[in-house]
Amino acid sequence: MMRHTATLTAAICAGAVFLQGCNPADNASNSGSGTSPGTTQASARLDVKPADPLATVNGRPIPRSAIPQQHRPGPPGASDKMRDELVQRELLRQEAEKQALLADPAVAEKVDNALRMAVSQAAAEYFIEHQAPTDEEIRLAYEEKSAPLRKTEFRLRHIVLASEAAARDAIARLQKGEKFEDLAKKLSTDTASKAQGGELGWQTQDRLAAPVSAALAGLKNGELASVPVQTAAGWEVVEREDFREKQPPAFEQVKDQIVRGLQVKKFQQHVDTLKAAAKIDMPAVPSASPRPASPSPAKP
């Protein structure tokens, strides 16, 4: 479940505006270091008490969850290297507290931004875990997405001619025993298919001209249309070679993808609701000053 949540929250980071640019791995390592401008020095550290800390520095534990997901378990020695790095970060954080760096508004803003990213990510993950789509919602979404993928396909040949009379003559010749392939190579004006004997391969019904689609629907496999059909290309002689119903992917094959899509949709709706209920003041961003024009080179 954790892997599924990590994948989904990464998708939410890409899709949700206020989480744009977030990185779950980075957030995990920053989750213990953040404060808002104007807060006291003590509030710059969350009171984390893991049962099995990765390390303890001057009495302060570092949780094992501080190791980014992509480094677990990692190659031999990688975890030791990551632990050393986390210990160094904790030492530097304690040093920053001694130096009262959070009293600097610029530093406090950076820490506040890091905390905002980490906590917003936690809120997103909490919402995902507690707002799972129902089986009915998943099934309805599957039907909605799969319906357009259920398509009728015909495999066919055609000969395109300039006039109805020429097309009827071609049909008569085919009915007398001439091969469709040979006649298409001799007569068809469709340069794209004549070299293949008029072969068009599998075509979905919605991509065919309406008269051609209707003619094929009334034929059996291997049967020639007894009358030509007129299309924008000219007068066509058509032969139905085969027929099949193109099916969408099976439900179980795409279920996880559908669930992720529904969760992202629910999450975005949740964010939209929060925005609608909030009082948000967004001052206009000042436009950049135009650059002065470069002086023209002096004429000799």
Rank of each mutant, 00 (worst) to 15 (best):
I12T: 03
T204Y: 11
E95N: 12
S43V: 08
D272T: 02
S43D: 12
A14R: 14
P248K: 06
A293Y: 08
T39S: 08
R168A: 14
L219T: 06
Y126P: 00
A214E: 08
R139L: 03
Q230R: 14
S289R: 09
E129T: 03
K265P: 04
A167V: 08
R60H: 13
R173Y: 06
I12W: 00
R3Q: 12
L46E: 08
L208W: 04
E153R: 02
A42C: 05
N221Y: 02
R244L: 07
S193F: 07
A166V: 10
K265L: 12
R60D: 05
D206G: 13
D80L: 05
K194S: 13
P50K: 08
N23D: 09
H130V: 06
D281I: 13
E241C: 06
K265D: 15
S65W: 07
K81H: 12
T40V: 10
E252K: 05
E164S: 14
V259R: 00
E245P: 02
E164C: 08
A250W: 09
R155Y: 09
V229A: 02
D272L: 11
A214K: 09
K194P: 13
V237A: 09
H270F: 15
R89P: 09
G77F: 03
K151G: 01
A44D: 10
L102T: 07
Q203W: 08
S33D: 11
R260L: 07
A214Q: 11
F154E: 01
D182Y: 05
H71R: 13
N58D: 14
T35G: 11
A114T: 03
S213L: 05
K275V: 15
A147K: 13
A55P: 01
Q253W: 09
E252V: 12
V285L: 14
R83K: 15
L274Y: 14
Q205V: 11
S33P: 09
Q121Y: 07
V57P: 00
E136Q: 09
D80S: 13
P53W: 02
N27P: 10
E252I: 04
A106T: 07
L54I: 10
L19V: 04
M282A: 10
V48C: 03
L101M: 07
Q88N: 14
D84L: 15
A276F: 10
C13W: 04
S163W: 11
A232N: 09
T40C: 14
Q263Y: 02
E97G: 10
G177I: 05
V285T: 15
R139C: 00
Q88Y: 04
K299W: 06
I280V: 15
Q230W: 04
Q131T: 07
L115E: 01
M117C: 10
Q70V: 13
W202C: 03
A167D: 04
N113Y: 13
G177N: 14
M282G: 00
P61R: 07
H158G: 04
Q70P: 15
N30T: 07
A192F: 08
Q196T: 07
H270I: 05
L54P: 01
H270R: 06
A214Y: 01
P53Y: 06
S287C: 06
T152W: 00
M1D: 03
R93D: 15
V229Q: 07
K266R: 13
R207Q: 10
A66E: 02
L91V: 14
Q131S: 14
A132C: 02
P297V: 10
A118V: 00
D26F: 15
P68I: 02
A55D: 03
I67W: 01
K186W: 06
P300F: 13
F251T: 01
